[in-house]
Nucleic acid binder design. Structure first.
Lengths: 205, 205, 205, 205
DNA sequence: AATGAATGAGTCTTCATTCAT
DNA sequence: CATGAATGAAGACTCATTCAT
């Protein structure tokens, strides 16, 4: 009755312990093939305990997603890059994303397939991940176009293309693409150059 | 006695009827939440009949994938574009892909989530869809670099980035992105310009 | 309309063809694990045809049993032995049974397990196989006791014991007993001696 | 925390409760016609609970067999009879078997038909029931022959004949033979006399 | 008479969820 | 709070049987 703060911490710890186990098992077998029994034993607890912390198996996915969103510290690191050179900004964005993905890939593998199929998760995922970033990027691109640092382009579609590139690369990694596996560290620069310079050869004379 | 050819046709028709229904239901509810009973009733047949044409529920996914691959006529239309201007080629590729996706999106929504989670399907999907195109593109880009029509770049990663862009855009559409929904027709040009010209402003003086 | 006799023969031939296939498949997999589809293909006909000759799958078992009973020619050969020496009679009985079993073992394997579990078949089997012989034997033993050729014994139980010995030996063979497999030809004499002379050593002085 | 031993007992009790129900239903309808649903309701539990204690329906048969084997206390009681008079030994063996059968008949009815058809069970059954006893009997008969208490005979076949007699009598009882039903109590003596003395009349002069 | 596609009831088995201890 | 036994609804798949051709 009196230990509110400590209790809260314990609860959080237990929730995280469960979510870690769930993410691992989901990533390994997919949402549906993962049984609560396996999640429980992977977390070293009993099945019943899961239901003391989460109302339903689906809530585990929600929990994973929420934690993933909190883990996303896009803003802090990037806000400063907003001011500098455009190409540097893109490298920074891409590197930030690529690193984040590195971390969160297992979780993404755990949730993405189910997100694509479950409207509730769909909406939440879009809001927490896609829109937050697309808004930021759209504003950035818009501003830089005005400043003449970026060519005039269809801003929403261009931003979607860039975001899509990430999501697609994650999917390709999940599918086991070997070129990506081996060259993952070079991805940020390659993408930044591709997006900023394009494939067109330098016109010099 | 006279039915071999006719029978074959009937069998194909029935198979397609079943796969159509399966694709619809899978797209709607995902692979696991789709019950064979629902697929059957959506196809207007009985559950048992499904199993006269497919050994397992998973084979329905495989069948959908195979049919999708056959539907892919990438080659014919594009082979001619291989010769022309680079930017035109990209527009052609993108338009071809975007159109194909338009058609196959429902099927992709049906299979992609499960593909990401099932190693067998993963392999097959990669072979039938990803690798066929990546090989083609890598060769093209390589050749054009030699000809000076494309800047020297990390070919495999660049090609993955372009492919990833498509897959990612499909995923975003599946997630219900509205900018993509409304602007879908402009996607090919936007992508082609992005990839070929980059975001860098024209340097003119 | 006019070909009654020929038609009858064709029907009999087809029925036998089906029963042969059924007996084979039943013996191999047991009644329940044998599917009508497999029986049909093993007979080289279609599933539907089976049902032109037999109303139900169970009727195949009945058909096999009936045919087996007809095949039993116990009487003819043995009737003559009825008159001779007792020990010779037993050898004759046993040899007759052992030979019959040799032939019919596959069919017995096909039907016995199901017979034990299905009351209808049980009754029919008992009547056709067990009782016909037990009656014969009981009369014989009874008569010979009166003649002083056989010790006074509990006739019904003794006859059951002898019959049981056969059934049990078949079961043991079906279970794969190797001693029986290899020594099968000696069984008639061993049994006759056992039953007639017993294990008690000859009292001689 | 204190429940390991108690829990083990509860588990055993539940397992036995399930096996009892399964044996009853198997004996009544045979293995295949018995549904897990019926077994469950006959045990007064839910279908799912069965699978908390047995992995598959077949394991129920195995469980029944194992329990039956444990129930077999052949050895203890008989070991003493090994020393005494031969005819007494046979009476003891037969009585022991007949009593055991009385108890286990329902279980035998449950498993025997399926055992005859399933190679895995076949092997296990042979090892647990047939071979253990045949080995014992062969050694006994062999020894007694040397001592002159038993006539020289083909030991393996003779032993099989005796064992077969039992199995066959069980089968006949399962088939509903009435002479056996009513005279069951006399069976041991009749068998012992038959096997030891034979049918041959005493030669006296 | 023969076919074999269609049927759909029935089966075993899984698993998220509950609740008494 | 933790446990894990019990639940029972739901699902994929099988197969004897029917019937239009």
């Amino acid at each position: 009755m009196s230990k509110d703060p400590i209790r809260q911490q314990l609860i959080q710890a237990r929730r995280n312990q469960i979510l870690d186990a769930a993410a691992t098992v989901f990533a390994e077998k997919g949402f549906h093939r993962a049984s609560t029994k396996e999640i429980a034993s992977s977390a070293g607890i009993s099945e019943g305990t899961i239901y003391n912390y989460f109302a339903t198996k689906s809530d585990l996915l929600l929990g994973i997603m929420t934690r993933l969103a909190e883990l996303e510290s896009l803003d802090e690191e990037l806000m400063e890059a907003l001011q500098g050179d455009v190409q540097d900004f893109f490298v920074a964005v891409f590197r930030n994303r690529v690193d984040g993905i590195q971390q969160g890939q297992e979780m993404l593998k755990a949730i993405l397939p189910e997100v694509m199929v479950n409207p509730d998760l769909s909406r939440q995922f879009t809001q927490q991940f896609v829109q937050r970033i697309s808004t930021l990027l759209e504003q950035y691109v818009q501003a830089r176009i005005k400043m003449g640092h970026i060519r005039p382009v269809n801003v929403p579609l261009t931003v979607r293309a860039v975001q899509g590139m990430f999501i697609g690369l994650i999917v390709l990694r999940i599918l086991g693409d070997e070129s990506l596996e081996s060259g993952w560290d070079d991805v940020p620069e390659v993408l930044a150059t591709l997006v900023f310079d394009g494939l067109k050869p330098e016109k010099e004379d």
